[in-house]
Amino acid sequence: HNLTITQGKLFFHYNPKLCLSEIHKMEEVSGTKGRQERNDIALKTNGDQASCENELLKFSYIRTSFDKILLRWEPYWPPDFRDLLGFMLFYKEAPYQNVTEFDGQDACGSNSWTVVDIDPPLRSNDPKSQNHPGWLMRGLKPWTQYAIFVKTLVTFSDERRTYGAKSDIIYVQTDATNPSVPLDPISVSNSSSQIILKWKPPSDPNGNITHYLVFWERQAEDSELFELDYCLKGLKLPSRTWSPPFESEDSQKHNQSEYEDSAGECCSCPKTDSQILKELEESSFRKTFEDYLHNVVFVPRKTSSGTGAEDPRPSRKRRSLGDVGNVTVAVPTVAAFPNTSSTSVPTSPEEHRPFEKVVNKESLVISGLRHFTGYRIELQACNQDTPEERCSVAAYVSARTMPEAKADDIVGPVTHEIFENNVVHLMWQEPKEPNGLIVLYEVSYRRYGDEELHLCVSRKHFALERGCRLRGLSPGNYSVRIRATSLAGNGSWTEPTYFYVTDYLDVPSNIA
């Protein structure tokens, strides 16, 4: 807008934040220059609390790290170098490059900038070799853009010569660093050979998330399962459950009422301010606690030095998902009996873990797994792929695949051998790939016309006998059925096997 004052003059007093240069501009645009008398524009009460600059400061050096910015700028000295009290560095987070010096300023003089007072450097006698002032900004957020400017702080001049310097606002972004852990990993099994893994992005990506790394490792069953005799009275049979499938998407929606109208769909109840505040506090606490764990609990591995020492970490090797089922080394339970199943799973520490690289999504279907087997899954978020990966501390989750139908069934015939004193040795093959492992066998036998009897055969007993022995049988026709019990439950009964026990007292003698 054009402003013209045809008559009258300007009068400025007691404006401590208004620089004289701005008042002189007002004289020019209003056409009143030359009308004012000496005392109409006070030299001592206008701009006496402001830094009124008329020179431009330029930054000469900028260096960044993930949490620091090192700045240096060209030296500046007023005509009387004693008038320079120091520099004021202003900075704040700036997602967009549209910041002005006066953003967030209120009537009390406060604003949204963080201000650092910096002492002037030592003055050199040689004007050509003056030290460049600077400042190291610490405690910054990774991968965050900051708006920065600097200006001088000078003393009051009796001659009211307006001098000083100020830089333009520059924008500097800190470097990326390792992201925080992925949030809320959930693993479920939808079949006997697959596990579905879902997660949420890290709360602090500290860069642009480029991919996720998912490692999985087959877990050995508890050692007590191999040692305890679950045929003993009072000892509860062990059981394991597989990871249940995901709930429906509708039930997972946030901010939804727990109660549904019987007449149909209901609208979600909005969260109160107290609920939102509580969630923010919980989120802040979780982030602080995660940072504490990362800094205190997890110790970084030592990389190899120039002395030739090897990095103890196993090298990563990509495998196809079809090879995942046989990740671990199978060892027989008892070496003397080769027909026992290889369900003991000690994992070799030198073995390469299978892994998958996930790009542009937060889910993965891990296939080719062994049925009813526990897996430990390790999830890392990465925001750099080359020249070397920059990934987060791992988040861990466990899951067990679903049982395989008929995996616990005894394959092959049940054979028998009759000894003296009416002892019958029953023999059968253990299931080759049971659900988890076989903890015991149930032997059901009966003599024709009598009630059915049951015998429990422990895992250890089966390994020693290759089956079991029935003792003290009365003469007669017998039928026997056997079924295995694994961590997933009972298998199917075998087809009945028949044998006849004679009275050993009636056996004919070869003595003449």
Rank of each mutant, 00 (worst) to 15 (best):
N255L: 04
V411R: 14
N360E: 10
K278M: 05
K460I: 06
G264Q: 03
Q429F: 11
L487V: 05
P354H: 11
E452P: 15
N421R: 13
A463C: 10
N339S: 10
H416I: 07
I377L: 13
T347Q: 07
V359E: 10
F226A: 13
S305V: 13
T494Q: 03
P387Y: 03
D409I: 12
D222N: 13
Q219N: 08
S243H: 13
S223P: 15
K361E: 10
A335G: 07
R319V: 07
G325A: 10
C456N: 01
N360M: 05
P349V: 03
N510S: 11
D385T: 02
E442R: 06
L453I: 01
C456T: 01
S239I: 05
F285G: 05
A336M: 15
L277I: 11
L321T: 13
F285Q: 09
E290M: 10
Q380F: 15
R286Y: 11
V439H: 09
V327T: 08
Y498E: 07
I276W: 07
F337Y: 12
G467D: 01
S509W: 07
P338F: 11
K302E: 13
F289A: 06
A220C: 15
K432G: 01
F215K: 04
R240T: 13
N422K: 14
C269D: 05
W216S: 03
L228G: 14
Y292H: 05
S251R: 10
K432E: 13
R319S: 11
W493A: 00
V480T: 06
R390P: 09
Q384R: 07
V334K: 15
A263D: 09
A220L: 11
S305W: 05
V296M: 09
Y292C: 01
R466Q: 06
S479V: 10
F355E: 10
F226V: 08
N295D: 11
D385M: 05
D261T: 07
R471P: 08
S474P: 08
Q256I: 13
V365R: 13
E442L: 10
K432C: 08
S509H: 01
G264N: 15
A407P: 02
H461P: 03
H211W: 12
V329T: 03
D261P: 13
S486W: 00
S444R: 04
G476F: 00
V214T: 04
P238F: 12
T401H: 00
A263C: 09
E221R: 12
N383D: 04
E265V: 08
G322C: 07
T210P: 02
N255Q: 12
H211K: 11
Y498C: 11
N360G: 06
C269P: 05
E433M: 06
E389L: 10
S304T: 04
E356M: 13
K361A: 08
V457A: 03
F298R: 13
N295G: 15
N421S: 11
I276F: 09
S367C: 13
R318D: 14
I366M: 12
S248A: 11
R301E: 05
